[in-house]
């Protein structure tokens, strides 16, 4: 068995009385891309939040390991240290991770200072160039509300990559974007994996994106992981009736 970067073992999590994530187990090896697919209410976003360590969320059972460290039992403060430097997060709404009315350069400076790094505009510029933003330095002088959603999402990716995390968590990272922009963001994520070997855990409702990106796919329904396997197997020989239905209902171009 290969060495897991992230290992989720029989995880259950809840906001209040009922578990939203129920008894989920899966793992990601370094450089692997795993997509968790599900519809609304399936618990897929909660799974990401459990890994990321949201304070309102209670882990009611099981554990999460990052490398050899059990992170599910860390305090919120200890977890914060790990986030950013080792695990990066790209949220669904890029606006939510930035202050809309502060200059991006100031926000980058603050984030880097928080991780004990000196502000290095050339490095950010280089990162932005890599993900297709040529005017990186000019962009940094803007405030997030002045930029489009696609632009902000790319900057969020750059911000996540700044600390060279070994794992990127993406929560519906493309669903708020236009189709053409979404395609570009998917390509950029694939490039990041190619060039740096970053492992990616992506949660989405979009089976098409999962097929394009994932090495392994998990299907979630009502909090449970009902099917897990490599991408070809999921699409060629799905075992679960619900998986078959999901695949069947994806709109396809009619030639």
């Amino acid at each position: 068995m290969s060495e897991y970067l992230l290992k989720i073992d029989r995880l259950s999590a809840s906001y209040g009385d009922d578990d939203i994530v129920k008894d989920v187990s899966c793992g990601i090896t370094p450089g692997e891309i795993v997509c968790i697919v599900g519809e609304s209410g399936s618990g897929k976003s909660t799974l990401i939040k459990a890994i990321h360590g949201m304070s309102e969320l209670r882990i009611t059972g099981g554990s999460i390991f990052f490398g050899n460290e059990e992170i599910s039992s860390l305090t919120v403060k200890e977890r914060k240290k790990l986030m950013g430097s080792e695990i990066g997060l790209i949220p669904q709404d890029p606006g939510s991770s930035f202050n809309p009315i502060r200059k991006l350069s100031a926000q980058f400076r603050e984030a880097m200072a928080g991780h004990g790094m000196a502000y290095d505009e050339d490095r950010i510029d280089g990162l932005l160039k890599k993900i297709g933003l040529q005017q990186g330095k000019a962009v940094l002088g803007n405030r997030p509300f002045e930029l489009s959603g696609g632009m902000n999402q790319r900057i969020a990716i750059a911000a996540a990559m700044l600390f060279e995390p070994r794992l990127l968590l993406c929560d519906e990272a493309t669903s708020a974007l236009d189709v053409t922009t979404a395609g570009a963001v998917v390509d950029e994520l694939l490039k990041i994996r190619e060039s740096r070997g970053t492992a990616i855990l992506l949660v989405t409702h979009h089976l098409g994106i999962a097929r394009r990106m994932a090495d392994n796919i998990g299907i979630m329904k009502d909090g449970r992981l009902i099917e897990y396997g490599n991408t070809e197997k999921i699409f060629d020989a799905p075992e679960n009736e619900y998986t078959r239905k999901l695949i069947r209902d994806v709109p396809r171009l009619k030639k």
Binding site: T180, G208, R252, L253
Partner: peptide, 24 residues
């Protein structure tokens, strides 16, 4: 007609849209 727009789009933009369609 749908078939015509999909198979022989007359604008570059439509072609770009078609390329961006991510499906299974």
């Amino acid at each position: 007609e749908t078939a015509k727009v999909i198979s022989e789009p007359s604008s570059d933009y439509t072609r770009k849209l078609l390329e961006s369609v991510i499906t299974v």
